[in-house]
Design a protein around this nucleic acid. Sequence first.
DNA 1: TTTGATCAATATGTAGGACAAAAAAATTTC
DNA 2: GAAATTTTTTTGTCCTACATATTGATCAAA
Lengths: 237, 237
Amino acid sequence: MRNENLSKDIQRIETATMADKVELRLREFLKKKAFKPGDALPKELELAEALNVSRNVVREALSRLRMLGMIESKKKRGTILAEPDVMGGFERVMDPLILDQKTLQDLFELRLVLEMGLADILFARITNKDIEGLERIVDKEVNKIQQPFRVKFEIDFHSKLYQMTGNDTFLRFQNILLPVFEYVVKEEQLLTGKAKVGKVTHRDLLELIKKGKPEDFRRGMKEHLSPHFARVNKRLM
Amino acid sequence: MRNENLSKDIQRIETATMADKVELRLREFLKKKAFKPGDALPKELELAEALNVSRNVVREALSRLRMLGMIESKKKRGTILAEPDVMGGFERVMDPLILDQKTLQDLFELRLVLEMGLADILFARITNKDIEGLERIVDKEVNKIQQPFRVKFEIDFHSKLYQMTGNDTFLRFQNILLPVFEYVVKEEQLLTGKAKVGKVTHRDLLELIKKGKPEDFRRGMKEHLSPHFARVNKRLM
DNA sequence: TTTGATCAATATGTAGGACAAAAAAATTTC
DNA sequence: GAAATTTTTTTGTCCTACATATTGATCAAA
């Protein structure tokens, strides 16, 4: 593992294009100079001159940072450091990737871990308004149990849980993972013929939130997700 | 929130540069055509012609995808679709970002959630060899309790836990989060004068892994992390 | 003096041409 | 037939030119 990483690094340095190097330099530059959001970067031509590369190369590097939301450019004003937004970058990385089976599985598990781990923060932050919100979702759910709706309610309920942690990054992260979850579950359905659901329903979970402790909720969630956990254990073989 | 997003989107479409559009097109193209890793993309000039833009613009877009590790280019061979590697992309996004305080806090919490949630997968996959590995780490730890070593062992122990899940993506994800954790803990130390540690030690956790159940381990972990959870609750105010 | 319009300056965005460099493919040479 | 050489191809880099939007200044009018 270590060796593999090393060789990758060496290769990277060897084959690094000017744009790669400039990108690195710019990142260092931004860190070093302790730029604040809104601060203006040097102009492209200045950078090109200072780095001794063509403006073209500088633009490629800037284009990358711009895509990640690290900087913003305007016609005359120049280029400025943007508000940092990790998840914005992550969304862009994740979205269209044709993920391989292994990674899909890994991400699926990651989401299971999140669901199991969120209990403590959830209970620390929960408000009455949140509970009302959950009530509404669960109420709607009992009326429509047809397949196309089921998935929607599933998402609504669990998304609400993340939202209730009051942690935006967390919420956005789960939103990114959502497609993965949907895909794997859909695939699971195709394989086994039917959607598997644990014995503990969303309503049960809600009751646990209202009356129980984090540990109880977690136990419920584990049962709720048990079909998926079964899948996890299977992979052991 | 919704309105803010909307206005952001509208603005984005309006101000979208050619490179932005081409990037999008390429991503769609890669998805649509169901390219497999190793498949060759059209040449830059062909793309430029097909998209009716200059080669410059195409290169900016390709440069972005290349940075994320979605594609690889070689001198004569052309450009090929790379093995997808989400975390590789994420690392690049995350690494040098000057994160704001709020995001740091959010990510810190995300890691707490992971630690609390990993018990089930951990117990499902654990091997005797893993336990031996943990033993070694804990043994070394008891001898050297000086400050500079403490952090190292802290990292070693917890990293080992992630590694034991057998989920590479998970492990790499925690590695990315590591700097955040270190930073926040260090800051915490400066503030309170001394590193706070929960009553449950790494050795205790190891015993729980050997003899206990996931629930017990989780309870232990919560106690082990209790100083950090205290911080989480504080933020409620 | 204030307001509004016009114009010049400027930095990014886009286009297109040229050549270097590497690597594969084709050709020649022994 | 194998080795050495040349050709071809595609990305990487540089350069110049111009479009475009925006800022700031200048000027005109009320």
